[in-house]
Simulated assay, not measured.
Amino acid sequence: MTTQLLLIDALNLIRRIYAVDSNQSHHSEEHMIKASCARVAHACKKLRQQTNATHAIAVFDGERSWRYHYFEAYKSTRSPMPDTLKQNLSRFKQAIEDTGIVVFSPDNDEADDIIATLAYKAATNKVASTIVSTDKGFLPFLSEQIAIYDYFKKQYIEVEDIKQRFNVPKHRLADFWALAGDKTNDIPGVKGIGNKSAQQLINDYESIEAAINDDELNPTLKRKLSSEMEMFVISKNLVMLRTDINLGFSLKQLRLN
Rank of each mutant, 00 (worst) to 15 (best):
S105V: 15
K126V: 14
L139D: 01
S133F: 11
D98V: 00
A123Y: 12
G137E: 14
A119I: 13
S105Y: 00
T117R: 04
T134S: 10
I114D: 00
L142T: 13
G137N: 15
F138E: 09
I131T: 11
I131V: 15
L118P: 07
T130P: 14
V132R: 07
P106Y: 09
I114T: 01
V102F: 14
T130W: 11
G137M: 13
I101H: 06
D98T: 04
L142H: 00
I101D: 01
Q87R: 09
D135N: 15
P140E: 06
E97N: 02
A111N: 11
A123E: 13
T99H: 10
L139P: 05
F92L: 05
L118T: 12
A119H: 06
D112L: 06
V127G: 08
D113L: 07
I96M: 05
S143G: 10
A123I: 07
A116C: 04
E110G: 05
D107G: 01
F104T: 02
A123W: 14
Q94F: 06
L89E: 01
F104Y: 15
K121H: 13
D112T: 03
N88T: 07
V132C: 07
A128Y: 15
V127C: 13
A123H: 14
D109Y: 08
D109N: 09
D135M: 12
S90H: 08
S90E: 00
S129M: 10
T124G: 08
K126P: 11
S133K: 12
D112W: 01
I114G: 01
D113R: 08
D112V: 02
T117S: 03
G137V: 14
D109H: 12
A116G: 00
S129A: 12
L89M: 11
V127Q: 12
V103M: 07
A122S: 15
T134Y: 08
I96D: 01
V102M: 13
N125I: 03
A122F: 14
A123G: 10
G100R: 10
E97V: 00
I114M: 05
V127M: 10
N88I: 06
Y120K: 15
Q94M: 05
T134G: 11
D98C: 01
A95E: 08
T124D: 14
D109V: 00
F138G: 02
N88R: 03
I96W: 01
N108Q: 11
A95N: 05
G137H: 14
P140C: 10
A111E: 12
T124K: 15
A95H: 07
K93H: 11
L139S: 02
A95L: 05
I96L: 06
A116D: 05
G137A: 15
K121I: 06
N108Y: 12
S143M: 09
T117G: 04
V102G: 03
T117K: 00
V127T: 15
D107E: 06
G100E: 11
E110S: 04
V127H: 13
S143T: 02
A128V: 08
A128Q: 14
I131K: 10
P140K: 13
